[in-house]
């Protein structure tokens, strides 16, 4: 059957077997392999994507059931090749070790922050409590989300400040590092 939805801002029209899961549509039909499959019983969160802005498990949704929906995957959140503050914080603060839970974790965190720009630690933990990470013990994941929030708060404070003052402060702090671009697909692919 034909399923049409928007994925990462692009309209997509796919001819799919009705039993196709959203996860399969993304990974196999659209080759968006950033969304991972970690379990088969909807209990690990590795496949978390946003469906109409809400977190959802792509392994537990029929692709056909997402007809007309707006879907966002890990590949779709960077802007102009620049990773989001959340993605950069996961890299910087040790929130990603093996990286396999990371896309789902980042998407769950993004869903939280999109609706709540100032969450408590408890709210962050609650929002991530459907996502299993086997590497970090979650400590550095929580720190990553906090760091992203701090960066956003810093940016907001910068924006609120008179421009000259902010410029002066930036000059005093030295040159800014060049933006870190998302790396291309592994050469092994």
């Amino acid at each position: 059957m034909i399923t049409a939805f928007t994925v990462n801002g692009q309209p997509r029209r796919l001819e799919l077997d009705p039993a196709t899961l959203l996860l399969e549509a993304l990974r196999e039909h659209l080759r968006l392999t950033g969304t991972k499959c970690g379990c088969d019983d909807s209990s690990c969160g590795a496949c978390t994507v946003l469906v109409n802005g809400q977190p959802a498990l792509a392994c537990t949704l029929l692709a056909a059931g997402c007809d007309g929906a707006d879907i966002t995957t890990i590949e779709g959140i960077a802007t102009d090749g620049r990773l989001t503050a959340l993605q950069r914080a996961f890299g910087r603060m040790g929130g990603a070790q093996c990286g396999f839970c990371t896309p789902g974790m980042v998407m769950a965190a993004k869903a939280l922050l999109d609706g709540n720009p100032d969450p408590s630690d408890g709210e962050i933990q609650a929002a991530l409590s459907g996502n299993i990470c086997r590497c970090t013990g979650y400590v550095q994941i929580l720190a990553s989300v906090r760091a992203a929030l701090a960066e956003a708060a810093g940016a907001a404070a910068d924006a609120a400040r008179p421009k000259a003052a902010a410029d002066a402060q930036r000059r005093a702090a030295g040159p800014t590092p060049p933006p870190q671009a998302a790396e291309p697909q592994s050469a092994h692919g």
Binding site: S42, P55, A56, L57, L61, A108, G130
Partner: peptide, 9 residues
């Protein structure tokens, strides 16, 4: 019930 993402689904 279950987890936040499962409660949304």
């Amino acid at each position: 019930i279950a987890s936040p993402v499962l409660r949304r689904m």
